[in-house]
Structures are given as structure tokens and as C-alpha cells.
């Protein structure tokens, strides 16, 4: 294996993994505050289509990513309103967000399938993704706000008794999660692909959710996990290139299969999952008894 090939593989892995890093970081913050948002896939798709349409209309990259990210904020606010104010079931609401996002994105994007665009270089985002992981680790474990966020996720009644506004903190965490998922989606349609296709996120949102469990809710491990997944999915392409004779569909299956295997390995340690998962995950909080 020559040096150029290794460089090019590393390059592709970096490009392909970055959306997983963004989405899993967003979801990690949301889950740390005690809220499970299963709408990652839907928010990524809406982010992807919004960014794409904005780029086609304005041809301005800054606006593209701004509005792309904002779309995630709006989607996440909808979710936050339902689960925090109306105290709806988080699992069902997250599913609804994904179903809604899939429909909305293909409805908006219908006209734009096949529209050519000039993509943006992914390298800024790759660098930013590493900085983001560092910032989130620092925020969660070295700052007071991070401690409060974790406290809300571990015991909302205690945090409430300490005088912290549980609903507000959770709202902000959900919105941050939505913004990151939509950024991941925008990156996919503008820098990674660059094009719009129905359901182009292809399960990456769900893989990001699995990554958070795999990482036992720790940012650094989520980054590591994302890169393992990125490598697995790139490896399949390269094996194909080397002429390994297995039908293409089985290569495409690799990341999904890897997700299941990894979940089995990590979840088998019940105690570790129980100790690392935020204790109030999916529990609703009602102030007035």
C-alpha cells in the first residue's frame, strides 16, 4: 500500500465522518440534559434541504449555513415545546419529528433534485468538528454551566430545588442539538455530496444516536466512535475497489451491521450503561406536581 493511497483514504474518512461528529455532539448535549430526541434523522434532512435551497437561491455560503442551521433550531423548538411544555412522550415525539422531517424535506426538495451547485470545501468543517468536540468536553466537565446541565439530566427535581430553571436549560440543550444536527445535514448537501437527493442522510441520524450510547455519553469517545464508523463505511468502498467479489449491497450494509454489533457489545455491560446514562433520560418534568 503506497503513501498516496493512505493519504487519500484518511482524507475520505475525515470528509465522511464529520457529519456523524456534528450530529452526535448535538444529540449528546440534548441527552445530557435528560431529553432523548429521536428526531436527529429528520432534523438532518431538513437542514440539508434548507441549506441546499438557500444556496441555489442566494449563492451565499454564509447565509446557506446560517439558514440551514436555523431550520434545525426551528424543528428542535417544535420538539422542545411538545416534550417540555406539553410533556408528551419523548420517544413518540422524536419519531414524529423524523417522519415529519422526511416528508417536509422531500416536499421542499422535489424541485431541486439534480440542480447543480458549487460545493464548499469540507476542510473548514473538519477542523471545526474537532474544535467542537474539545469545546463540548470543556463545557461539560470544566465549567459551572456544564455541571448544571449534567445535574439537570441526572436529577431534575434536585436541580429544580437548587433554583435552576430545568425547562429553560433543557430547551436550550434541545435547540443546540437541533442546530448541530441541521449543520450536519447542511454539510452533507453542500460540502460532502454536494447535491440534494431524497433521504440522502440514509440513516446517519440513527447511527449518530447509536454513537451516543456507544460513547457512554462522553464527547471524546463519541468522536472516536464516529471515526470507527466512518472508517468502516469507507473501507467497504475501498475493498470494492480492490476487487473483492461481494455484491455491492453487502458493503453498503456494513455501517448498519456495525451499529448493531457495537450496540450489542457496549450494552451487554448493563451496569456501565446504567451508571453512564443520564438518570432522568426520557423522564418528563412537571413543576406543579
Amino acid at each position: 500500500m503506497n503513501f498516496d493511497l493512505i493519504i487519500s483514504i484518511i482524507n475520505i474518512v475525515l470528509i465522511a465522518t464529520t457529519p456523524l461528529v456534528f450530529a452526535s455532539m448535538g444529540e449528546l448535549i440534548t441527552e445530557k440534559s435528560g431529553v432523548l430526541n429521536l428526531g436527529v434523522e429528520g432534523m438532518m434532512l431538513v437542514g440539508a434541504v434548507t441549506a441546499f435551497v438557500t444556496l441555489v437561491i442566494t449563492e451565499n455560503y454564509f447565509l446557506t449555513f446560517l439558514i440551514g442551521t436555523l431550520s434545525g433550531v426551528i424543528m428542535a423548538s417544535l420538539f422542545a415545546f411538545l416534550v417540555l411544555i406539553l410533556m408528551s412522550n419523548q420517544v413518540a415525539t422524536g419519531l414524529a419529528l423524523t417522519i415529519f422531517g422526511i416528508g417536509l424535506s422531500s416536499m421542499i426538495g422535489k424541485k431541486y433534485i439534480g440542480t447543480p451547485i458549487v460545493g464548499v470545501s469540507p476542510y473548514y468543517f473538519i477542523v471545526f468538528s474537532f474544535i467542537l468536540v474539545f469545546l463540548i468536553s470543556y463545557f461539560l466537565y470544566k465549567t459551572k454551566s456544564g455541571l448544571i446541565l449534567r445535574a439537570v439530566g441526572e436529577s431534575h427535581t434536585s436541580a429544580h430545588a437548587q433554583g435552576y430553571n430545568v425547562i429553560k436549560i433543557r430547551f436550550l440543550s434541545i435547540i443546540f442539538g437541533g442546530a448541530m444536527c441541521a449543520l450536519a445535514g447542511s454539510y452533507m448537501s453542500i460540502a460532502y455530496a454536494p447535491m440534494w437527493q431524497e433521504n440522502m442522510v440514509a440513516g446517519r441520524g440513527w447511527i449518530a444516536l447509536a454513537l451516543v450510547v456507544f460513547a457512554t455519553w462522553k464527547p471524546g469517545r463519541a468522536l472516536l466512535g464516529a471515526y470507527i464508523f466512518g472508517s468502516v463505511s469507507i473501507l467497504q468502498m475501498n475493498l470494492q475497489g480492490f476487487g473483492v467479489r461481494i455484491p455491492a449491497q453487502f458493503f453498503v450494509m456494513a455501517p448498519y451491521l456495525a451499529t448493531i454489533i457495537v450496540l450489542v457489545i457496549i450494552s451487554n455491560d448493563r451496569l456501565r450503561i446504567k451508571l453512564s446514562a443520564p438518570a432522568c433520560l426520557t423522564l418528563p418534568f412537571f413543576k406543579g406536581r
Binding site: N89, A92, A96, L97
Partner: peptide, 27 residues
């Protein structure tokens, strides 16, 4: 000439509203 995906949007909406309206069962 509305994309067919509008059906999925309606389906998502109905679930959102249902989950929201379920508040009225307990509160």
C-alpha cells in the same frame, strides 16, 4: 402539482398534534 411527500407531512403533523393533545388526558 404538489409533491406527493405532502402526505408524509400531514402524517407527521397529525402525530405531533395527537401527542400534544394527549396532555389533556392527564392535565
Amino acid at each position: 402539482q404538489v409533491p406527493q411527500a405532502v402526505g408524509f407531512v400531514f402524517q407527521g403533523l397529525v402525530l405531533f398534534y395527537l401527542l400534544g393533545a394527549d396532555l389533556l388526558i392527564n392535565y
